[in-house]
Simulated assay, not measured.
Amino acid sequence: MVDHFYIKGFIHFGISGNTNSSLSIGDVSIPKQFANTGLWDWLKPNATIPSNDVAQLDFKNYNVPKEGNNSLGRVGYSPEQFYSEAGEPNTPQQRLWFQVSNNWLHLATSLEGMELEQCVNATLCLDYKPKVVVGLRGSTANTFLDNAAYRDFIFQTFGVSSADMESTAVVMTSLSNGYPVIVVRGLSDLAGAQEGQNSIDLFGPLAATNVANVVIQFVKKLSEESYSRS
């Protein structure tokens, strides 16, 4: 796209799991930062975590009963190696967090308070009004998260409020090439905190509708801002 089209920036959007208990299904999150929480050093039970890893998950902490080791060992969370046109040639930066564009994020705050859809159809509705939230953190990994214990772990360890499978890559690529970027995610499920089956099949369409409506309004705001500056 960058090679063949005149790109001004990237608006990435989709649905995601909700890892923050203060948020709800149907809400739309516009995070300020993203981390790739799927870049692991998977180690033996008593191995030393590499010095550049930023966090660790020790599986024995989740044993039932509590005593003893766990053959799965432990996981160390590695930072990304980030190359940028603004950085030194062929010299990566070690980075965990990738910040979306501040001016676009500031513009997105004007969408807080926007009315969102509450019903999937005439017979399936939420019993609350979804909201737009700007400025939290998001995580990306190449796994679909539907596990309450791990949901709590990544929220407590990284402070992330959403979990998806694409956003960090989009933000990294945009920043690496010097383009503004923002991410908008609709919360479709509780990432394992629910009782029974995951709700993505029920409320995924609602989350997708809400995130699409927010993106449409953001594009309008962006166009108005660009016109006012011209």
Score class of each variant (00 low, 15 high):
residue 135 G to W: 09
residue 174 S to C: 12
residue 111 L to S: 08
residue 152 D to C: 02
residue 200 I to P: 02
residue 139 S to P: 04
residue 130 P to Y: 04
residue 211 V to K: 10
residue 175 L to D: 01
residue 151 R to D: 09
residue 198 N to Q: 13
residue 168 T to L: 00
residue 104 W to C: 08
residue 107 L to M: 14
residue 154 I to S: 01
residue 137 R to T: 07
residue 117 E to P: 03
residue 146 D to L: 08
residue 133 V to E: 04
residue 132 V to A: 01
residue 107 L to I: 07
residue 189 D to Y: 01
residue 162 S to M: 11
residue 148 A to Q: 13
residue 210 N to A: 08
residue 216 I to D: 13
residue 185 R to V: 01
residue 193 A to I: 02
residue 165 M to D: 00
residue 136 L to P: 03
residue 165 M to P: 01
residue 137 R to P: 05
residue 134 V to P: 07
residue 169 A to E: 08
residue 221 K to W: 03
residue 163 A to Y: 05
residue 121 N to Q: 03
residue 218 F to E: 05
residue 158 F to G: 06
residue 132 V to R: 01
residue 124 L to F: 06
residue 176 S to L: 00
residue 157 T to S: 07
residue 131 K to D: 00
residue 192 G to I: 09
residue 210 N to Q: 07
residue 119 C to I: 09
residue 206 L to D: 01
residue 111 L to P: 09
residue 178 G to D: 03
residue 149 A to K: 15
residue 162 S to G: 08
residue 134 V to K: 09
residue 210 N to K: 04
residue 207 A to E: 00
residue 136 L to N: 13
residue 173 T to P: 01
residue 189 D to Q: 00
residue 158 F to K: 03
residue 204 G to S: 02
residue 137 R to D: 08
residue 181 V to E: 05
residue 142 N to T: 09
residue 199 S to P: 06
residue 152 D to I: 02
residue 206 L to G: 05
residue 109 T to G: 06
residue 191 A to T: 03
